[in-house]
């Protein structure tokens, strides 16, 4: 890890609260700060507010109160246009990949450039040759070297390939921060390590901050620089993986640590907070 980069704060969250309607808040009074190049995993079973916290970091979900600063910019203070520009430098990947099934792989990747695409080009679905080239580079970097695939429809790909396309779409944004919402939950076990390695590798080479929600304990321990565990919308643990003792795990998952094996955690899928 880059020692010098460690000093700069990339993401800062102060007193963040989000409540849906009148029910109990999904997250309550959370304050955190993440450094440049840090790999952070938000850990916890489904429904503890991981998804909401992640979406508050790029204002896909507008927090009820509190401050979010990305790279020194306070998102809440930005104009509508300013927010779109800020989002352009925050990459995001999802559990269900969120590709447009009927569009080609290449078009899906280029959609990462929509934030900067001119009006006329956008109206005529006419990306520039530079965008095409950038998309191909991003795809190669995301591990899809087979150029036969680029013109195929996105729904003809396998799960792992789809997530690689989604990663390429994120890469083409040239992000400073990567938000990842359960990126391996819909993949089979073989694919999971490959995708995690890929994200880790990209983050290390480019010095990116990664904030990833996960419910798989072992994966979190293997890859995270820092684990943050949530329960009832609040932080219950914040520290490096080696401090995550069995006692803490029991508190987070509400059951003995040795019962949390792969099989059980696979079945839990994060329902999007509504």
């Amino acid at each position: 890890m880059n020692i010098e980069a460690d000093q700069t704060t990339m993401v800062e969250v102060r007193n963040l609260t989000k409540a849906y309607g009148s029910s109990a808040p999904a997250i309550e009074d959370i304050s955190l700060s993440f450094k440049k190049g840090e790999f952070i995993v938000l850990l916890g079973p489904s429904g503890v507010g991981k998804s909401t916290l992640l979406r508050c970091l790029n204002f896909l979900v507008r927090p009820t109160s509190g401050i979010v600063k990305i790279n020194g910019q306070e998102l809440g203070a930005l104009s509508k246009k300013g927010l779109l520009q800020a989002r352009h430098h925050i990459g995001m990947i999802f559990q269900e990949f969120n590709l447009v099934n009927r569009m080609s792989v290449l078009m899906n990747v280029m959609c990462g450039r929509l934030g900067t695409l001119g009006t006329w080009r956008a109206l005529t679905y006419n990306f520039s040759p530079e965008d095409h080239e950038a998309a191909v580079r991003a795809l190669v970097r995301a591990g899809l070297e087979d150029q036969e695939l680029y013109l195929r429809r996105a729904d003809t790909l396998s799960g792992g390939q789809k997530q690689r396309v989604a990663i390429a779409r994120m890469l083409i944004q040239e992000p400073k921060v990567i938000l990842a919402d359960e990126p391996i939950a819909s993949l089979d076990v073989m694919m999971r390590a490959q995708i995690m390695d890929l994200i880790k590798d990209i983050a290390q080479r480019d010095g990116l901050t990664v904030v990833m929600s996960l419910h798989q304990l072992d994966v979190a321990k293997n890859y995270a620089d820092r684990i943050i565990a949530l329960a009832q919308g609040q932080v219950t643990f914040d520290g490096p993986p080696n401090e995550l003792t069995d006692a803490v795990i029991e508190r987070v998952f509400n059951k003995p640590a040795d019962e949390i094996d792969e099989e059980q955690t696979v079945e839990i899928t994060e329902a999007p907070a509504e």
Partner: peptide, 24 residues
Amino acid sequence: GPLEAMSAAGASRWKVFLYGAWPQ
């Protein structure tokens, strides 16, 4: 899903519609 992904990439409302919803 794709609409959310495009919003996250900084696309404005009409671009999200044109690229996320219209092809569907």
